[in-house]
Computed example of a mutant assay.
Amino acid sequence: MNVTRPAKVAPADFVPLHLETRTHVSTGITAWHVSLQQQTLRAMACNESYDPRLKPVRHAGRLLWPVAGIKSILGVA
């Protein structure tokens, strides 16, 4: 039985990392860049098990992740 997965779709506010001008981005954007599920990032934030360069901030009940940390982890900073 062949099962096809739906194509991975970028979040609506996605900007390629090299063109990103925001200092922090949403969990969806971060998940896209680091190839993790959003829920994995949320669990990492709750357990404080993230890389220190990727420490999220909470704003209005949402997690925002630093673009500089994403670039650093991916080795493009």
Rank of each mutant, 00 (worst) to 15 (best):
H33N: 15
G28R: 13
Q39E: 10
V3P: 05
A10R: 04
K55I: 01
I70A: 10
W32L: 10
A12F: 10
R42E: 12
T27F: 00
N2A: 09
H33S: 12
K55Y: 02
P11F: 04
T30L: 13
I73L: 14
P11G: 02
L41D: 14
T21H: 06
D13C: 04
V15A: 02
R5T: 10
G69D: 00
T40I: 12
T27H: 01
A45Y: 09
A45E: 12
L54A: 10
P11L: 04
T30I: 09
T23W: 03
A43P: 04
S72R: 03
R53Q: 07
P66E: 04
R58W: 07
A31H: 10
R62V: 02
A10Y: 02
V76H: 04
A7L: 12
W32R: 06
A43V: 14
P52H: 05
G28S: 15
L41R: 13
R5D: 07
Q37R: 14
L63M: 05
S49W: 01
H24G: 01
E48N: 15
E48R: 15
Q39W: 09
V57S: 05
A31D: 11
A7F: 08
S49N: 08
H18F: 07
L41C: 14
S49H: 07
Q38C: 13
E48K: 15
R53N: 12
T40P: 12
D51Y: 10
A7I: 12
P66D: 07
L64E: 12
P11V: 03
S49Y: 02
Q38W: 02
C46S: 14
F14R: 00
S35G: 14
R53H: 11
A31M: 11
P52V: 07
A10D: 03
R42H: 12
A7D: 09
H59T: 05
R5N: 09
G61R: 07
P6L: 03
V57A: 01
L19R: 12
A60T: 01
I73G: 06
A77M: 03
A7N: 08
V3W: 08
W32Q: 06
S49I: 04
T23A: 09
V3K: 11
L63G: 02
T40Q: 14
L74W: 02
L74C: 05
G69N: 00
V25Y: 03
D51G: 09
V76Y: 04
V9N: 06
T21A: 06
A45K: 11
A10H: 04
E48V: 13
A7E: 11
L17G: 01
V15F: 05
S49F: 04
T4F: 04
T27N: 01
H18C: 08
S35P: 04
A77P: 05
F14I: 00
W32D: 06
G75F: 01
H59G: 02
H33I: 09
W65V: 02
L41Q: 14
S72I: 02
C46P: 04
